[in-house]
């Protein structure tokens, strides 16, 4: 029997959740026995070529590319998991929510204390660059999300226990220390 395929993505996140995944230490050997990791920044596979069992989403949506990616994941994964505070409620990137986009761009590219070289006073506007959204959206406001694993980052034990429970169909029992929002 072939192993279930897992995909991961980091949208508007800091890769901290992916780092926390590596914190499962030697259990990573068991993980390889349990699943195949396909499309993911870890493997550098960039496209879906078949249906996946599980998709793990780090980060919310702050631009059009994030939305496109997330929708691709929903289409190609049976189960989608929001991993970490950013995917769940926007997290740190969402601290710009409520501030007008123009004000954010001005601060970043024109008036910020570290802006020295932008003498022509332009905002980056190449066609290749994804469009910023009006605000940062939690993943479940864009597509249906099946499971949520909170934390900043989510504890490695939480990720491990949840993945194993999901893949083996066993009931999930989490110790108190494992579920935290920070």
């Amino acid at each position: 029997m072939s192993k279930p395929l897992v995909a991961t993505a980091s949208l508007a996140g800091c890769f901290g959740c992916h780092m926390s995944l590596l914190d499962i230490d030697e259990r990573i050997l068991k993980l390889v026995e349990l699943v195949d990791i396909g499309k993911s920044p870890v493997t550098d596979i960039k496209t879906f070529t078949q249906q996946y069992a599980v998709g793990i989403i780090e980060g919310g949506c702050c631009n059009s590319e994030n939305v496109h990616n997330l929708q691709e994941f929903r289409k190609n994964c049976d189960i989608l998991i929001s991993l970490g505070e950013c995917a769940i409620m926007g997290g740190l990137p969402a601290m710009r929510n409520g501030i007008p986009i123009e004000e954010c761009l001005n601060e970043a590219y024109l008036e910020g204390p570290t802006v020295h070289l932008n003498t022509e006073k332009i905002f980056p506007n190449d066609d290749e660059l994804p469009m910023l959204l009006d605000r940062v959206y939690p993943a479940h406001e864009i597509v249906k999300i099946d499971y949520f694993l909170p934390g900043c980052p989510p504890r490695a034990d939480l990720i491990w226990d949840a993945l194993v429970a999901l893949l083996t169909g066993k009931e999930l029992e989490l110790p108190y220390e494992v579920v935290k929002y920070d």
Binding site: I88, M89, G91, L92, P138, C152, Y181, D182
Partner: peptide, 29 residues
């Protein structure tokens, strides 16, 4: 935003979230 809050870990609201097993708010933020 628990990750940036000084009170995180000592916050009663957060502690109640833990107690009730809240993984996400079902209401729009």
């Amino acid at each position: 935003y628990c990750p940036t809050c000084e009170m995180s870990g000592n916050c009663e609201l957060q502690a109640l979230g833990y107690r009730f097993g809240m993984m996400v708010s079902r209401f729009p933020y």
